[in-house]
């Protein structure tokens, strides 16, 4: 589904990604861990087409297509979704209007007619139940005045609405209380099918108890320096990143 080859990227003239290689197949869950500032969010942003980040080398294919050649909105409509680490607020733009536009743009891209108002509201109700998000939130402007945890929940709600083939969740667990973490993880698991895939960026084993990854990668100074099965998370939780740095001879 996703094949990243020798990807280099910089921001503000500074090299951040320095040769990423990663393959994600349908049905898989990958977790990316790594110290602060190692480039996890940068990788996520580069994949979804944030133009603040400049790709200097390498290639990315998504379902056989050249991902880097597409604009951000096309990538989204091709099925790529990012749950942002820091979702922005858009005052005055209602969640309903925002999501309706987004859903219908996706449909248009697939040559489907727009949803009727009734069908759209039905879809919203269904997905709201799935991630147990309060109507009080979805009746407001996009993220405006939402608490940190509410914003994260709202990201997963949008993911449920858009049903991406590849979802990248950038620290969606940070800021969630214990119940919310369970609810959100549950939502992500419900959305899982053999045809889609998930990349989880996280710092904590806790999330991986709920959403069990097939692979864990450690990103360090712009490179994936270690890949292993889910047991790696426990080891990291116990020992931190120092032993990996040592392995690398630092």
């Amino acid at each position: 589904m996703l094949v990243i080859k020798d990807l280099y990227a910089k921001v503000e003239g500074k090299d951040i990604l320095k040769g990423i290689n990663l393959t994600v197949n349908a049905g898989e869950i990958h977790a990316i861990m790594g110290p602060n500032g190692s480039g996890k969010s940068t990788l996520a942003n580069v994949l979804v087409g944030n133009t603040n980040f400049e790709v200097t080398h390498g290639s990315v294919t998504f379902n056989g297509k050249d991902l880097l050649a597409m604009s951000a909105d096309v990538r989204a409509k091709e099925g790529l979704f990012l749950s942002f680490q820091y979702p922005v607020e858009i005052p005055g733009v209602s969640m309903v209007n925002f999501l309706k536009t987004a859903v219908n743009e996706h449909r248009k891209y697939r040559d489907q007619p727009p949803l009727s108002a009734g069908d759209f509201l039905k879809l919203m109700r269904e997905k709201k139940a799935m991630v147990q998000i309060d109507s009080q939130l979805t009746n407001r402007s996009v993220n405006e005045g939402f608490s940190g945890g509410e914003k994260k929940k709202n990201e997963i709600f949008q993911m449920a609405m858009l049903e991406p083939t590849l979802a990248i969740l950038d620290e969606t667990d940070s800021g969630l209380d214990i119940d919310a973490l369970r609810i959100v993880s549950n939502g992500v698991n419900l959305l899982k099918t053999p045809n889609n895939a998930t990349i989880l960026v996280t710092h904590y084993q806790r999330l991986l108890d709920y959403i069990v990854p097939d692979f864990i990668h450690v990103l360090y100074e712009g490179r994936i320096v270690k890949s292993a099965g889910k047991e790696l998370a426990l080891e990291l939780e116990e020992k931190g990143y120092d032993w990996i740095k040592k392995e690398l001879g630092e």
Binding site: D73, F81, V88
Partner: peptide, 9 residues
Amino acid sequence: FYCNQRGIS
């Protein structure tokens, strides 16, 4: 960009 990421031009 947030809108772009949701498929909005």
